[in-house]
Every structure is written in structure tokens, then in C-alpha cells.
Design a protein around this nucleic acid. Structure first.
Length: 874
RNA sequence: GGGCGCGUAGCUCAGCGGGAGAGCACUCGGCUUACACCCGAGCGGUCGCAGGUUCGAACCCUGCCGCGCCCA
């Protein structure tokens, strides 16, 4: 009896309560140092740097996706014996953080940023950073992130600031960073320059106004969507070959309103087919006009201030907002009879500040730039020559398109929160760039540049600055280049490309061997989540409701490379159900003495079911490995889900029940060993995806210290047994058909039904009768056995005593459906085989397969037809 | 305007040259000692449309329609 069972019994609670357990479990993992890297170890290194979240935000589902996928990769490597480092940290998010703190000051009725002064304001931001950053760290712990907390970094910490200054100085000296007066994307909302990729071009309905400059024989018509810019016009351009205007080139026309005389120039940029064929030139407020202005040496007056108000034109429009001025100037021109035509609405593309949504105003100003040509080429080469592989490969096209056509990068921002540009200007026009170990110039008239660097400048150094660069640290030596980068495709240009540019420049090597770009998480209908739509889901709420494992499993299961995924409460609930299923199955196994330490019995002593499940485990393990190596998270997860639920739980555990019925038997002992072995391996395979529930179950099953540091399953040396598998599949078909018959005859599961099984011996299934009876609830026939129906499956049949008349109509319907299906199959097969071209050209194995299907279908038809004819007429 | 991608069961998505699949939803039956967050059985699809290639096309090619993303 029970004394033959192993003494250990399950102390797992009946129900898995993630909320009660996860926190303490995570704490123990950290305390035991499982997540800490050890550069002195002789194990191979594996390193991933976290995509640093904005310190001022909070983690959303996109982060949860990053973190889940990185955790899967790093937990697996750790189990495989790698010295694994997942390095955590945050970036300072210059604009976002400064904006938040300014708003908080305003909300609290405190002095403004300018009233506080730079030093005091920055001190306040650090206070906010401590508060906001702490919340993010808590979120990461809830998710179960296996990060090395001892190596946490922040883009504005001392070491990383030193890295920024070092790179800046080196690039400045190399001529890769320069300062120039250029037309930049100016955000009147942020009152700062922003880079090209922080601008979104959107189609808007505006107006196209044609107006007449000059008078008499020196008159010319130009069109614009921004009438107010005419206040800054310093020229009119026509195409050199345009005979209509040849007589005007070289002359001047008199501007309305300002009364300035501006030259008419010839420039091949002008499209003579568009509009009147003449364009106005506002060099300080339009990129194309700026280039033309330069070519023709035109003056470049700035007519707007930093917040987008007209200034310095000496007209009554000074002080007016640019959009108000647009109307006012237009009406003034109309009053003067200068409007020739108006097109409204006129749909055209307008740049918007991607953060605030306000319309960008091109603005002439003195800014710092990175000369990107050589850097971008090096980044492109890293992918071209295979040092870095982009997954999925389709994304490489976008990558190349970008790096091959990159413009210089504006890196200065008119903010206070960030890395201040390490350049001092002297009283006599000197410019001195100061390295980290150098003293800045002092004395009368010297002043430091007021601006800070784009946050992406510092996060671009992340893969090596976090490892200690510019010092030659042990970590840097060991973990750079990092093994992989996992992030969303939406920041390929913002971040990934920049890291590759800086990495190849500063380190001489691309920062990561693999880049996995995942998609975005959308709502249940595939819509983007946004506050305005009100469809944002907070990952913490999902974790509270269903546990971290359920959220992680959902994300892993939905993460197909390069495509977005939909997520809703229901998906996560389904994943929670999976963890519950796993919990119950393992508890059942432990309660029945599953023994992971027993070692696998000799194959000869195992049942077909044992051999089948072990063979499937072997396949699933191989498949999981191959898929995870290839960043195919969804397929790997789906495969484990299917194996766990549809094979292990639905079939093996059910088949194991009769095998366990006599605990003293060898069969039962073997079954306990197989159950233990399979679950031990399965829990380890699942651990990277669902770390918490597998930890509870694996330690409960094996008594081991922690699955976090357990060995990743490897080949157990099992030979596949196709014959056993074939028999198990035949048993499954047999059972399913009997169940189908029972259901359609309305025979309740509890109702005792006697039956006689036939043909099992001939089909090689003699040993499975007990299992079939157990899973179909068929009793042994008694003395009064009087079969009323027969179910045939292949060469086996089951005579069933339904104790009374059967439902002939239901049976006729059931058989009728079977007949129709078989007939359809037969027709399809015969059609193919009747085509001589098919039999000639198709591969032999395909033709043989179709022939076999034809035979099977024909046999089915004969059997079912006979059965139908034998039915009593109703 | 240029480039990329997607249209497969009610919903979300796999499959990408030889028997149309999964999860959720739905219908019917069941609290059968692992699990009702469950079990069993089922219903559900001219694989966007039209041509072409092929013995054979959801899958390859062309065009069209619809949707999305990136870049200008």
C-alpha cells in the first residue's frame, strides 16, 4: 500500500496564490545572489543591457514585454551554465523629466524654474528622480526581472557622466562634433531644438495663398501655406530656364507691408510647373529656403521668438502668435489687393513635435551637431558583415535605409536637466572643449555653454558606459560586446542605431551580436493603447489580478517576431488558467509519488504511454531550444503549452492513473519515475517564462534549492519509439470515438455501460484495454450482456450494451456524418490519382500517401455503410 | 510621393507548395478523488478579389481593393 511510496509528501497548498508568494520568492532570489554576474568565473559570459526606462515614467506593457523576453533569454542562459549579466538601469529623460518637475512646481504653487535658478531647480529634479525611479524598480521586482541589482546604473550618475564627457571630448577633437548656425526643428512648446526623428510629419488641412509682390512690370506671384513668413522674405526665386520670368532675374521687387526691395534670383531648385513657378524665400524659417538663401547670399532675418511669436519685423504684427499673424497678415494683404488666389482646405504635410504635438517652427540657431556620415557607415557595416544580426531579418531593410541616408544629428537641447555641454567660451571668442580630467578655463569673461545634450546621446553609450567605460574594467573586458539587445522596433533609429554608432566609434566593436526587435502591445482589437482612447492597461493591475507569471506567459505566447500583439484581460486570464493547470498536475504527481530522483527505468520495462510521453518530451525540449535560440518566443511558448495541457495532462496523466492503481507494482514505480522525470524537465523548460510558479512546483517536486540555478534540460538519451507512439495515438482515437458515441447517445458519464472490446489483440493494443475502459467508463460485460450498438475504429471495434434501444436517429446522424467525410476524402483522393500527370510528376511518397488515404477512406465507407444498413429502420 | 508589411473560424493570431489549425468566444453534456481558473463532445472558414505559374496554390508571380507602419 502506501508504505511503498516515497516518504516525501506534498506540502504545496491546494491553490497557487501568486500574490502571497511572489514577493518573498523574488526577495530570496536576490538575497542568494542568483542574479549577480561573476566576471572571475570560468563560465562563458552572456550579457544583456536593459533598455533603460525613463526615470520619470512608469513601466507600461511595452516595458513588460522587453523585460519578459530578456528575462527568458537570461534565465535560460543562467540555467545553461553561462555567467549571466542582465544589467539594469534608467535614463534621465531630459525633456520629459524637466517638464514633469516644472508642472509639479506649478501645481504646488512654487516658484518657476527660472525663479529657482539652475542649481536649485536641478536639485529639485534629483528629488523627483529618487521618488519616480524607486517606483520603477518596484515594478521590475514585481515582474520578476532577474537583473543584477549590484550593477544598476543611471545615465546621469557619476560614471556615465564621465563617459559622456569623454566621448564628447574625443569626438570634438576628431571633428565629429561641431557647432553651427543651422535651421533646426524648434519646438515652441519645449522652447528647445529637437532632432529630426523627434518630428512627426502629418497631413493637415491648411491653406495655399497666392499673393502678388512688386508692381507694374516688376511684379511676381508667389504662393505659400504660411503667409506670416512673408515678413521674413529676402528674395524670390524662379527657375533659370523659365522664360516667363527671365526679364525679372537680377532685378528687385517691392514687398507689400514691409516695403523692402528683395531680389529675384534664378535657382534650379524651383519647380516651374508648380503654382506660378516662382517661390518666396524665407531663409530663416524654411529648410529649402535656407539652402537657397545660402546659395544666393541673402540676408536671414529671424522673425519669430522662441515661443513662436512674431518679433523684430518693425510691423504691427510683432508680438502676435504665428497662427494669429497668419490670418492678420493675410487680411492685410487682401485689403491691399495683393491676394491673387486662395486654396482652402489645402492638405499638406506639416512637422509636429512628437512629444507635445505642436507644429514645429524651423528656426535658425546655433546648435551642436554630430557629423554622422562615418559613424552611420560603420553601424551599417556592422550589420552588413554579420557582427550584429537583426531579428527578424526583414527589419534590416529599414535599418539600412536609415543609416544610409542619415542627416547630421542635432544634440544640443535648451534644457537644464541633462549632461551640460563641456565647452567654455572665452572673452575673445575662444572655444574650449574640456575633457573629464581637465580643468575648465577660469577668469574674467569665460562662460560655459548653457545647453545640455540630447538624452539619446548618453543612452547611446549605454552598452559600454554601464560596464565602466572609459575605464578598462573587468566587466567591460568580459561582457562587451553584449550578447543581445531586446527592444521595440519603434526605437530602432532613436536608440539602436545610435548605440551602434557610438559602440563602433568608442569601442571599435558593435555593442551587441543580436538585436531582437519586438512589436508593440495593442489592445484586444489591435488598437494602439493611448490615454486618450482610455484603453491603456497597467501591467501591475494584471499582475495583481492574475500573477506575474500569467502576464509573462501571455506576452511570451503572443510575441511573434516583428509583429504587434493584442492583449486583454481575457488573454491574461487564460494564461493564469495555464499556471493553475500546471499547479494541479504537479500536485497530483507529487501526491502520487512522482519521483524525479529515481532515474529513468530501462526502456524495455516502460509502457507505451511512458515511452510516448518521454519521446514527446525529447522532441519538445529540442524544439524549445531551437526556437529560443532563434528568438521565436511565441512558438516556443505555444509548444510548451500544448505539450503540458494537451499531451501531458489530457493523456499521459490520465493513462498513468490505471498504471498507478497498484502502488506496489513495477509499473507504478516506473510511472512515478517517468512522471517525476517529465515534470522535472518541463518545469525547468518553463521556468524562464513563468519563474514563480515553476519555482514553487520544482522545489516541491525535487526538494532542490531553486530552479533558478537548476541545470537547463539536455538530451536524456531517449530513443524515440515510433511504434509505441503509433499505438498511443491509436488508443487516443479509439477512446475519442467511444466518447463521441456516448455523447451522441446521451449516455451520461456516470452511467455504467457494459462493453466488449474486439480486435485489440490484432491491432497490437491488447495491453491497453484497461486504459480504454478507464477513460471511456466502459464496464466488463456481465452475464446479461446484450450489445445494442457497435463502434468501429480502424480494425478494432467496441460492442456496447446501452441497456435498451439506442437512439437510432442520433446514430444514423453520426454515421451519416462519418460517411460524408469519408466520401469526400475518397473523392479527393481518386480525383488526384485519376490524373496521370499527378502520378507521373508528384514525388513517390506523396502519391503513396494519397493511395493510402484512398484505401482508408474506402474501408471506412464500407464499414459505415454496413453499419447504417444494420440499423433498425425507425 | 518612396519603401515595408498585413488581409485565414465571431475576436486575436499561427500555418507560407501536397490531408484548413490554436487560444478566446459559442452550443450540448458533466461538480467522474489533480484541476469547474475544470473535464468530455461539438458547431464554425469559396484562406480579401481577379488572373497566372504548377500534376497540385491559403502558401509562388502579376494586377486590383481594403488596412497599417516607416520615410520624405
Amino acid at each position: 500500500m502506501t508504505e511503498t511510496l516515497p516518504p516525501r509528501t506534498s506540502d504545496l497548498p491546494a491553490k497557487w496564490n501568486p500574490g502571497e508568494v511572489e514577493g518573498g520568492m523574488y526577495q530570496r532570489w536576490v538575497e542568494r545572489g542568483y542574479f549577480e554576474a561573476d566576471p572571475s568565473s570560468d563560465r562563458p559570459p552572456y550579457c544583456i543591457a536593459i533598455p533603460p526606462p525613463n526615470v520619470t515614467g512608469s513601466l507600461h506593457l511595452g516595458h513588460a514585454m522587453d523585460h519578459t523576453l530578456i528575462d527568458i533569454l537570461t534565465r535560460r542562459r543562467r540555467m545553461q551554465g553561462y555567467d549571466t549579466l542582465w544589467l539594469p538601469g534608467m535614463d534621465h529623460a531630459g525633456i520629459a523629466t524637466q517638464s514633469v518637475v516644472e508642472r509639479r512646481l506649478a501645481d504646488a504653487g512654487e516658484p518657476t524654474r527660472r525663479e529657482l535658478g539652475r542649481e536649485e531647480f536641478v536639485r529639485r529634479v534629483w528629488e523627483w528622480k529618487a521618488e519616480s525611479g524607486g517606483a520603477i524598480l518596484g515594478q521590475m521586482k514585481r515582474l520578476g526581472d532577474g537583473v543584477d541589482w549590484s550593477r544598476e546604473r543611471f545615465t546621469l550618475d557619476e560614471g556615465l557622466s564621465r563617459a559622456v564627457q569623454t566621448v564628447f571630448k574625443r569626438m570634438f577633437d576628431d571633428g565629429l562634433i561641431y557647432r553651427a548656425e543651422r535651421l533646426v526643428n524648434w519646438s515652441p512648446a519645449l522652447q528647445s531644438a529637437i532632432s529630426d526623428i523627434e518630428v512627426d510629419h502629418k497631413e493637415v488641412e491648411g491653406e495655399l495663398v497666392s499673393m502678388r509682390y512688386g508692381d507694374g512690370d516688376a511684379e511676381i506671384v508667389v504662393a505659400t501655406t504660411r503667409v506670416e513668413t512673408m515678413l521674413g522674405d529676402t528674395g524670390v526665386a524662379v527657375h533659370p530656364d523659365d522664360e516667363r520670368y527671365a526679364h525679372l532675374v537680377g532685378r528687385t521687387v517691392r514687398m507689400p507691408i514691409t516695403g523692402r526691395d528683395i531680389p529675384v534670383v534664378a535657382d534650379p531648385y524651383v519647380d516651374p510647373e508648380f503654382g506660378s513657378g516662382a517661390v518666396k524665400i524665407t531663409p530663416a524659417h524654411d529648410p529649402n529656403d535656407f539652402e537657397m538663401g545660402r546659395r544666393h547670399g541673402l540676408p536671414m532675418p529671424t522673425i519669430m521668438d522662441e515661443s513662436g511669436r512674431i518679433t523684430g519685423t518693425g510691423t504691427r504684427f510683432d508680438g502676435m502668435d504665428r497662427f494669429a499673424a497668419r490670418e492678420a497678415v493675410r487680411e492685410e494683404l487682401r485689403a491691399q489687393g495683393r491676394i491673387v488666389a486662395e486654396k482652402r482646405p489645402y492638405v499638406h504635410s506639416v512637422g509636429h513635435d512628437s512629444r507635445t504635438g505642436v507644429v514645429i517652427e524651423p528656426r535658425l540657431s546655433l546648435q551642436w551637431f554630430v557629423r554622422v556620415e562615418a559613424l552611420a557607415k560603420a553601424a551599417g557595416d556592422a550589420v552588413r558583415n554579420g557582427d550584429t544580426t537583426i531579428h527578424p531579418a526583414d527589419m534590416s531593410a529599414r535599418f539600412f535605409d536609415w543609416v544610409d541616408n542619415m542627416h547630421d544629428w542635432c544634440i544640443s537641447r535648451q534644457l537644464w536637466w541633462g549632461h551640460r555641454i563641456p565647452v567654455w567660451y572665452g572673452p575673445d571668442g575662444e572655444t574650449v572643449c574640456v575633457g573629464p580630467d581637465e580643468e575648465p578655463p577660469t577668469g574674467e569673461g569665460w562662460a560655459r555653454d548653457e545647453d545640455v545634450l540630447d538624452t539619446w546621446f548618453s543612452s547611446g553609450l549605454w552598452p559600454f558606459s554601464t560596464l565602466g567605460w572609459p575605464d578598462k574594467t573587468e566587466d567591460l573586458e568580459r561582457y562587451y560586446p553584449t550578447s543581445a539587445l531586446v527592444t521595440g522596433y519603434d526605437i530602432l533609429f532613436f536608440w539602436v542605431v545610435r548605440m551602434m554608432m557610438f559602440g563602433t566609434y568608442a569601442m571599435g566593436a558593435t555593442p551587441f551580436r543580436h538585436v531582437y526587435l519586438h512589436g508593440l502591445i495593442r489592445d484586444e482589437h489591435g488598437r494602439k493603447m493611448s490615454k486618450s482612447k482610455g484603453n491603456v492597461i497597467d501591467p501591475l493591475e494584471l499582475i495583481d489580478a492574475y500573477g506575474a507569471d500569467a502576464l509573462r506567459f501571455t506576452i511570451a505566447r503572443g510575441s511573434n517576431p516583428g509583429t504587434d500583439m493584442s492583449l486583454s484581460d481575457e488573454w491574461v486570464a487564460a494564461s493564469r488558467n495555464f499556471t493553475t493547470k500546471l499547479w494541479n498536475a504537479t500536485r497530483f504527481a507529487i501526491a502520487n509519488g512522482a519521483d524525479a530522483a529515481a532515474g529513468l527505468p530501462a526502456t524495455e520495462s516502460l509502457t507505451d504511454a511512458d515511452r510516448w510521453i518521454l519521446g514527446r518530451l525529447h522532441q519538445v525540449r529540442q524544439q524549445t531550444d531551437a526556437l529560443l535560440e532563434d528568438f521565436q518566443f511565441a512558438k516556443a511558448t505555444e509548444g510548451l503549452f500544448h505539450f503540458t495541457w494537451d499531451e501531458l495532462c489530457d493523456w499521459y496523466i490520465e493513462l498513468a492513473k490505471p498504471q498507478l492503481a497498484d502502488p506496489a507494482s513495477t509499473t507504478a514505480a516506473n510511472t512515478r519515475a517517468v512522471l517525476g522525470h517529465v515534470l522535472d524537465a518541463l518545469l525547468r523548460l518553463l521556468h524562464p517564462i513563468v519563474p514563480f510558479v515553476t519555482e514553487a512546483l520544482w522545489t516541491g517536486l525535487t526538494g532542490g534549492e531553486s530552479v533558478v540555478v537548476a541545470a537547463w534540460p539536455t538530451d536524456a538519451g531517449l530513443a524515440a519509439d515510433p511504434a509505441a507512439t503509433e499505438r498511443v495515438l491509436a488508443v487516443q482515437r479509439l477512446i475519442t470515438e467511444v466518447r463521441r458515441f456516448r455523447t451522441e447517445q446521451g449516455l451520461p458519464d456516470r452511467r455504467s455501460v457494459a462493453a466488449k472490446l474486439g480486435g485489440l489483440e490484432a491491432a497490437g493494443l491488447a495491453g491497453h484495454e484497461r486504459a480504454v475502459r478507464f477513460l471511456t467508463r466502459l464496464d466488463e460485460p456481465g452475464d446479461d450482456f446484450a450489445p445494442t450498438a457497435t463502434v468501429e475504429i480502424g480494425n478494432t471495434h467496441v460492442e456496447i450494451d446501452t441497456s435498451g434501444a439506442i437512439d437510432v436517429a442520433a446514430e444514423r446522424a453520426r454515421l451519416g456524418r462519418d460517411l460524408a467525410a469519408a466520401q469526400k476524402e475518397l473523392d479527393a483522393a481518386e480525383k488526384k490519382l485519376g490524373n496521370p500527370k499527378f502520378t507521373e510528376k508528384a514525388p513517390a511518397n506523396v502519391v503513396d500517401g494519397i493511395r493510402a488515404r484512398r484505401e482508408a477512406a474506402a474501408a471506412d465507407i464500407a464499414r459505415v455503410t454496413a453499419r447504417l444498413e444494420a440499423l433498425p429502420s425507425s
